[in-house]
């Protein structure tokens, strides 16, 4: 089972005018076919399950391991200090009962620059606690200076992020 070499057959040369008429028929018969375009803002096509875009962060499970910072190919992720536990009093269920999230002892959380992010999904793949994850959300137009998302903004929905 190997590839075989085949000399391609060159079709017969079309007759002038008649060939053009055939081309016109071949093109013109699509006149009555249904359009395939999607009218975007009104109707949004079905998004495939694995489609990935906007990065989200769930601060209660982030342990500040900096793996995502290390794996990011474009160095779009920087770790940033955020005292989220004090602000929101995050509580983690453990075997010994509920207590404060002390896993992230350095209080560092990822900060993503979407201007250079290539949505390669490596951060999601390497995250040991699934704290950073990509979602289907792709409608986040921005001005040029506001591509950087702080950890607070990463944790919120796009509409709540005020830029």
């Amino acid at each position: 089972m190997v590839a075989t070499i085949k000399e391609i057959k060159i079709p017969k040369k079309p007759i002038p005018i008649i060939g053009s008429l055939e081309t016109m028929y071949n093109v013109g018969r699509f006149m009555f076919k249904k359009p395939i375009t999607t009218q975007y803002p009104e109707e949004k096509g079905e998004i495939p399950e694995r489609f990935r875009f906007r990065i989200f962060l769930s601060p209660e499970s982030c342990i500040g391991c900096t793996l995502c910072e290390q794996i990011c190919p474009n160095h779009s992720i920087k770790m940033e200090v955020w005292e989220v536990e004090k602000e929101q009093g995050l509580v983690v269920e453990t075997k010994r009962g509920a207590r404060e999230n002390l896993q992230n002892k350095r209080h560092i959380y990822p900060d993503v620059n979407f201007g250079t992010c290539t949505v390669c999904r490596n951060c999601e793949e390497i995250c040991p606690t699934n704290a950073i994850y990509l979602t289907h959300q792709f409608e986040d137009a921005r001005t040029r200076n506001s591509f950087t998302y702080s950890p607070q903004e990463l944790a919120r929905q796009e509409d709540d992020v005020i830029k």
Binding site: V27, G28, F30, M31, K34, P35, I36, T37, Q39
Partner: peptide, 13 residues
């Protein structure tokens, strides 16, 4: 419109 329909688009709308 004609061009759009032949090219499977909708055209100006």
């Amino acid at each position: 419109k004609y061009m759009a329909r032949i090219q499977l688009r909708i055209g100006p709308n």
